[in-house]
Design a protein around this nucleic acid. Sequence first.
DNA 1: ACCTGCTATGTTAGCGATAACAAGGTTCCG
DNA 2: CGGAACCTTGTTATCGCTAACATAGCAGGT
Lengths: 332, 332
Amino acid sequence: MTDVARKAGVSTMTVSRALRDGASIATSTREKIMRAVDELGYVLDQSAGSLSSKRTGFVAALVPSLNNSNFADTARGLTDALQGAGLQVLLGYTDYLIEKEEELIEAMLRRRPEAIVVTGGRHTARGRKLLVNAGIPVIETWDLPPRPVRHVVGFSNAEAAEALVRHLHGKGYRKIGFIGGTSNRDTRGADRRLGYERAMAALGLRETRIISFGTPPISMKQGGEALARLIEQWPDVEAAICVSDLSAFGALMECNRRRIAVPDRIAIAGFGNFEISSCSFPAITTVSVNCYDIGRRSGELLLRAIEGERARKPIAAETVITDYEVIARESA
Amino acid sequence: MTDVARKAGVSTMTVSRALRDGASIATSTREKIMRAVDELGYVLDQSAGSLSSKRTGFVAALVPSLNNSNFADTARGLTDALQGAGLQVLLGYTDYLIEKEEELIEAMLRRRPEAIVVTGGRHTARGRKLLVNAGIPVIETWDLPPRPVRHVVGFSNAEAAEALVRHLHGKGYRKIGFIGGTSNRDTRGADRRLGYERAMAALGLRETRIISFGTPPISMKQGGEALARLIEQWPDVEAAICVSDLSAFGALMECNRRRIAVPDRIAIAGFGNFEISSCSFPAITTVSVNCYDIGRRSGELLLRAIEGERARKPIAAETVITDYEVIARESA
DNA sequence: ACCTGCTATGTTAGCGATAACAAGGTTCCG
DNA sequence: CGGAACCTTGTTATCGCTAACATAGCAGGT
């Protein structure tokens, strides 16, 4: 920057001002400086700038996985919402493990992000403490934690699953099964199973039919195997709710392969409204959950929260509940 | 850090040493410092550290999109390879636009990454210049650019497509079509089409049947529509190569929906070996391209390159060619 | 001509860490 | 017991930029 300043015949402070907007600077000076910048191929060092200005322009975001297109959509929504404000998303993958989340929270905080977005409301004790004491806006997404750290953007996975059970019930299905992963690493998956159980009980359907198979997130292939087990264990099963559209798709393809008619012999429903559900044949009944919106609305909330911090007037804790909707298609 | 130092009764330099590994420090001192760190809830400020040490610990990576699980896999491989070395990936999405790539390159360089990974070999003139002058290791992935900036980790999309054509030819198919997007924003898609054309010519199959439909990356649904057009335009078509597995899946489902037998009436092949291809019914013949490996091997190459820079002995330009393999399944 | 109020630019002093060197203490050997 | 070699810790001086304040210059009203 000193070189640029010398070449343009101004002080470094003026160069600094020219390279950001909003500063009062004469047009002629700015042009002179820009010319010098171009000629020297100078690129601003933002890390030095952040140290001085105490604004890094980072927002940390932790998601379980990116290969799940749901979270990729959320990351995308977040990026889109923050881009205009000059904020950059620092992404981390937790692999559905809260221990890894804890490590990542700490690694992220070392970068002094201006806010942090995490997935879900379950954290290690230390992870939670780090979030609480971070001194920056925190958003938990994709869930409605009973005791949120601060802000929340999400929906009740249990309620959404209940709605799906009621939908199937309304269609006349009674012997409804549930396919999900084994552990409860995936708290959203566990919530969905809980919703299934609650809705079944509420409808007076005593007998639940649950197949737990594979480490979350369960794959398409595992969905197929789980369906095979479901049918084997309860040959009378009339419908299968799968923890995600991916497993639902696997289950559906297993049916196609075995010439089991869907939905006549068995109905299949998924969760998440991935593109695959609308496109597969038969198209899969699912719950649409606005993944992109979770990211975008988190971003919008963050912008207000960060603004609040800067003005030393922190905003109150907010909970944004996003929509979900049962999408009835051919498979159920 | 001053607070920690005071509490532990040492200098800040000693605290700094305790918080990194490899520094020589007495165990008792380190423990004392760690206790102070825990009690105060201190988190190292890495941005200040980078300014001083000139090592930010960032690696920039630009991918066209994350919703495409191929690039998500590459990002994952890269992250995995770099994690152990304490390097963090700064991810950006170009949306398949080199203009957006240019912006992102500049934004990333402001963060002083220690290396940068981009997708493909096509850049704006200024984007290329920024890469060349960045003074850090550069890797172009997923392609084999004719005039690489420096390092390359990828494969020839054209050759891979040729191999697929030859596979279909070997199976007896002659009237082979190609389904892809309209623009050549997606240079890998364009290369695959080129490979298709070359292989057809080499096999003496004069008549090509190409449907260009939808802005890349084309979706499942667009794949379905494109298949409909292909059949309409060339009712005699015997096989369809799709630019990606997603569009192949869309095409396949369209066939199922229309009761067009696959592969008896028409064969379908995709590209990328996404999970969906192995799981759908019929399973889709495709080209497996080791997405994760592209990322992982890029990461490994980067580590050596960064080491070289630090030792002031830059390593020579390398080109790592990753494998691809035709995976024959039920659909072709 | 004087003062007020504004804009454009410069000066000074850090931001929070680490590199590089210095120095005190210990070990170990002949 | 002296001194080289090593280990541990401290001191000083930045890293590259920006906040905050200072200052110069100019317009405009009286």
